[in-house]
Write a protein that binds this DNA or RNA. Sequence first.
DNA 1: CAAGGAACCTTGTATTGCAAGGCTTGATCG
DNA 2: CGATCAAGCCTTGCAATACAAGGTTCCTTG
Lengths: 114, 114
Amino acid sequence: MPIDGLATQLRKGVIEYCVLAMLKEAPLYGGEVIQLLRTKGQILVSEGTIYPLLSRLRSEGFVETEWRDTPTGAPRRYYRLSRSGQKAVADFRAERFRFRDSVNEIFPDGGRQK
Amino acid sequence: MPIDGLATQLRKGVIEYCVLAMLKEAPLYGGEVIQLLRTKGQILVSEGTIYPLLSRLRSEGFVETEWRDTPTGAPRRYYRLSRSGQKAVADFRAERFRFRDSVNEIFPDGGRQK
DNA sequence: CAAGGAACCTTGTATTGCAAGGCTTGATCG
DNA sequence: CGATCAAGCCTTGCAATACAAGGTTCCTTG
């Protein structure tokens, strides 16, 4: 597996909003985010990707956080979608569809293949 | 317009292959690449994006180049898709569909709108 | 008290897209 | 002839992202 390959570049600017979209359903902590990305989307991300990403979402106000103690060890920081985070997801959705259509115009046999 | 916004991140790793896909039809020089991206895909890119990108395609062997004089002024460097460039486009296509499906799994109401 | 696991964070690197500015060629105009 | 202009190409510096590697804290278990 290439350290920095084709798939890695495709992810840029997308994973962030995948996380926000998942938070729409329920608050999650870091480990759950990684697990859900893997099980729901076959998207494998490491902690080195997720934690800086979550930090940025927080500093941009897209999420709010809350510490919860656990019986099993270290406490967890749970992330919850904020109002402006909901708007960010909606904006991304629209932009994603626009861009997808653009690329489909350029690629021969746009997007209609299995 | 934000210097580095939502749309800019979405493009990463995609424009490169849009260019290769366009070269599948005919050899092009830098200015034509910029123009075609704009007219066919509504994708606005500047010279500062395209020329380093074309350089990289060349150093990776995805394209071959040829200088042609013009009657109008400076000569043009034309880019032609190589054999390995064709394979790169095919690989990208497959990876793009995979990733699209993954994201659709995560986003509520995946891709079926409008 | 040592070992280990769960959870979190930080640091450094590579890649990409982009703006700004510079260089070269040939035509045009004073 | 010299200056100006436009087309075409390239380089430099910056910001954002994904990632690996390594470190820290907390609690439990032996």
